[in-house]
């Protein structure tokens, strides 16, 4: 019994290692990837400094003080890089080219294979981005009024894990559209931009206005970027943070159920054309 469990876990562990190896093969690209967040961070830091400078000292805009907004801009931009996926294109290609049928007869679950590879790749990403995040937080704590609150780290770690799971499931569902669409073109990229905006990855959702914020609060996207960012920046008290974590976990379960349903329904349509 335990040998079977070990054998099963071993398969996925190997996939996890493959994901990690793939990320480490192109080390220069891996190390350069956080650079993509540098320009948006500069842009937003400049913008917010100028906008707050035009008002009175200590005032708030969109529910944020200047220092809180700067911290949000830095952390949210790094997190949006960290939770970013990319496997949806491979998933779609497997469905479109019929390559999925080869995977279906192998003694490994396709969903498990993908999530294990994603987790492996993200481990390398997390190490690099985590260092950048730690460095940025040290600068923020030393140069702004944002306090160092080590107590938020466990809640942030949990929120980040849930954000990674949630984003994986959101884009897994997006990739599964391949069962119904013969061509997706740039649809995935268009959806990614909308989802990142709806997640608070560009600006806090309050910038979009009260009505838009209220609508987006009913959707799971904010738990992928805005919620972990606010937890790390200490903007959420312990009670609401716990409630947010529970809600994030609930959304993960809902999306997992939806993903399972879409997968089963898609497989019934799958004709392995092109294999």
């Amino acid at each position: 019994m335990s040998a079977r469990v070990a054998d099963r876990a071993g398969k996925y562990l190997r996939c996890f290692r493959l994901g990690l190896q793939d990320a480490l093969t192109h080390r220069a690209s891996l190390l350069l990837s956080p650079l993509g967040a540098v320009a948006p961070i500069i842009l937003q830091v400049v913008l917010w400094n100028r906008v707050y400078a035009a008002g009175a000292a200590g005032d708030t805009l969109f529910g944020f003080t200047r220092d809180e907004m700067l911290a949000y801009a830095v952390v949210a931009n790094l997190l949006s890089r960290l939770v970013r996926t990319g496997f949806e294109y491979e998933l779609y290609e497997d469905i479109k080219s019929g390559g999925l049928d080869r995977m279906l007869v192998q003694p490994i679950g396709y969903f498990g294979l993908r999530i294990a590879r994603f987790a492996g790749g993200k481990l390398a990403d997390t190490a690099v981005t985590g260092l950048c995040l730690a460095g940025s937080l040290v600068v923020l704590v030393s140069r702004t009024s944002i306090g160092a609150r080590l107590a938020v780290l466990p809640a942030f770690a949990l929120a980040l894990i849930l954000a990674l799971c949630l984003n994986f499931l959101i884009f897994w569902c997006v990739g599964l559209l391949g069962f119904w669409l013969t061509e997706t073109g740039f649809l995935f990229e268009a959806l990614r931009v909308v989802i990142v905006t709806a997640s608070g990855g560009i600006f806090p959702l309050s910038v979009l206005g009260r009505r838009a914020e209220a609508v987006l609060a009913l959707l799971p996207f904010r738990f992928t970027i805005q919620f972990p960012t606010e937890v790390l920046c200490g903007r959420i008290a312990p009670g609401p943070a716990l409630a947010g974590l529970a809600l994030s976990a609930a959304w993960t379960l809902i999306l997992a159920a939806l993903a399972g349903r879409l997968w089963r329904s898609g497989l019934r349509r799958f004709a392995a054309v092109g294999s």
């Binding site: 192109h26 220069a28 690209s29 891996l30 190390l31 350069l32 990837s33 650079l35 993509g36 540098v38 320009a39």
Partner: peptide, 10 residues
């Protein structure tokens, strides 16, 4: 470098 994902992103 061989892979330009990071460069293109930058």
């Amino acid at each position: 470098l061989g892979k330009g994902g990071g460069l293109a992103s930058f």
